[in-house]
Amino acid sequence: MYIPYDILIIIAFLMLGYGFGQLAEKKHYRSIRQRETMLKDILIFGAKSPPADWPIVTSELVHGNVVVSVDYFKRFLFSLRNIFGGRVEAYESLIDRGRREAVLRMKQHALRLNSDAIFNIKFETSAVSRGFSSSLGSVEVFAYGTAIKTS
């Protein structure tokens, strides 16, 4: 009797990806929310420089980066979505996780320097590796800004 091993392997990967992927994502979001509440006192601004009347003590560059990878199941969803086009929710959550994580790491860096606020925040997103059929493999999100300590 012929057993289609290759198809079985793909199905196993899909199930593994779905199971562990969902679990990891839920866990990551819980940790992100928890740390966001913890670090909410460090304010982030997109503005170029702080108001002129702020009593500034020190300023220093802070940054945070993270490489996140999409799971096998989501990549499969994307390959289906790619046929008809439209919103790719599976990847939206990936990039969202990456950005929020990078911001949190930047804030943690600022916290180590006892800073109060971060100005001129810039984001950079780059694809680190490609998955099968040139779909997205993993992305790096890098966030940086100038941390400012007021008296």
Binding site: F13, G17, A24, V67, V68, S69, L94, G131, G137, E140
Partner: peptide
Amino acid sequence: NIVGGELKAYT
């Protein structure tokens, strides 16, 4: 890459 999540080595 199968299960997704952070790739610490790359980070």
